[in-house]
Simulated scan of single mutants.
Amino acid sequence: MEFTVGQIAEALRGEVEGDAAQRVDRLAKIEEAQAGSLTFLANLKYEPYLYTTGASVIIVSRGLVLRQPVQASLIRVDDPYSSFTTLLEFYQQSTRTGKRGVEEPAYLGSGSVIGENHYRGAFSYIGQNCRIGQNVLIFPHAYIGDRCTIGDGTIIYAGAKLYADTVVGARCTIHAGAVLGSEGFGFAPQLDGSYRAIPQTGNVILEDDVRIGANTTIDCATMGATLIREGVKIDNLVQLAHNVEVGRHTVIAAHAGVSGSTKIGDFCVLAGQVGLAGHLSLANRTTVTAQSGVGKSIKVEGEFLQGSPAFNLRDSLRANAIFRHLPDLERRLTQLERSRIEPEKP
């Protein structure tokens, strides 16, 4: 696809400096861009490339002051990163939405209904009595169990598995290998030391605009629903246990694990390898840094947590600074004790 600089600027509500009639047909990183490509500058660490790149068009901030002449045309916007993301989304959609129709063999169970302009890849499976919206893309080897509901514009990638009764909202993305609705880890200890499995009778509900990373698993609820609210973004290889609730627009990075019945507030951030114990809650806008473990509820909004067990970031940094000096502090303490015990020399 080919667009003029003027067309792109109009779509981004930006201002053109240079040739508005110039055409571009691809996106590129600023350090690698060649003629005919469009790039962006959001991080000033890359500003030197602004004056050497071969790109034809660069999206920059409205307030950027040029230090020397630039060969490329500029599109000035309020937020270059966000604007370039918008273009990437448009490009992605235009390449994906070309897939339509049904590849054989593909299975559609009795009583299931699917909307217009959908795509079903080869060996995909849709169970009985499912309700699937319009413009849904279901890639090869995806499995959708009985009585599932999927909203308009959602994408289910190859090999993803949705157990029975899973509900997925509109414009969601579920990446390859993700499993939604697998049995929650619930077992009742018996008198003889064995464990008896507790039936998991609930489901998983994803609201609109949720993204689930590759090989992430979300367990169904024991009763009720494991609930992922609007706009949540979950990375690859994340585990969410039964009856977990994740608040709106929260992001969870890879290798994080959340134990059963924990409730995460809105706009929270869980970095990589974070672990949350069960039956606790995180207040809105809580941030937990990488490899931290949270073992109690956080009731104050906006807390930054670090460590295992995790506590306030500022206190954690002070504690770590003291910890690094412990060997020297021990040596000085030992010397002090010896000086008090040993008799003074005449």
Rank of each mutant, 00 (worst) to 15 (best):
G213C: 12
A28S: 11
A72Q: 08
R171C: 06
Q190T: 14
P189I: 15
I341Y: 05
G293Y: 10
R62A: 13
G307I: 04
L27H: 08
E245S: 10
R26G: 12
P140W: 05
G169C: 02
L66P: 06
S308M: 12
D235G: 00
T217M: 10
D192F: 11
Q335T: 10
N284I: 11
G260C: 04
N129I: 02
C268A: 09
F185S: 01
Q200R: 10
F311A: 07
Q335A: 14
R131N: 08
D25E: 12
L66S: 08
F3P: 01
T217Q: 08
H249P: 03
L64D: 02
D19V: 11
R26M: 09
L313W: 09
L41I: 05
A277I: 10
A241H: 10
V204A: 09
F311R: 06
L38R: 01
A253V: 15
V77D: 05
G224C: 11
R96N: 14
H279K: 11
L276H: 03
I298V: 15
E183H: 11
G6F: 04
E116A: 10
L191Q: 12
R76V: 08
A20L: 09
C130E: 03
V113W: 09
L282R: 04
S94G: 00
V300T: 14
L313G: 01
M1A: 13
G159W: 09
R332G: 01
V244Q: 02
T262Q: 03
T287N: 08
R211S: 15
V167K: 06
A253P: 10
L191Y: 07
Y163G: 07
G109F: 03
K233V: 00
G6C: 06
C148A: 07
D25A: 12
G151L: 06
I264G: 00
G169E: 01
D165M: 07
N236D: 01
G181A: 07
S259V: 05
F304S: 04
I114P: 00
T39G: 07
E342L: 11
F3E: 03
A20S: 15
R67A: 15
V294L: 00
D315F: 08
G177D: 11
I218S: 14
D209P: 00
A164F: 01
R23S: 13
Y49S: 08
G54I: 09
Q335N: 08
R67T: 14
G278A: 15
R120C: 13
I212E: 01
T149Q: 12
M1I: 11
L50H: 05
S259W: 05
Y107I: 14
G224M: 12
G18E: 11
R131Q: 13
V16H: 02
S94V: 02
D209L: 00
R196Y: 09
H118L: 05
A176N: 15
F304G: 02
R248I: 12
L162S: 06
V258K: 09
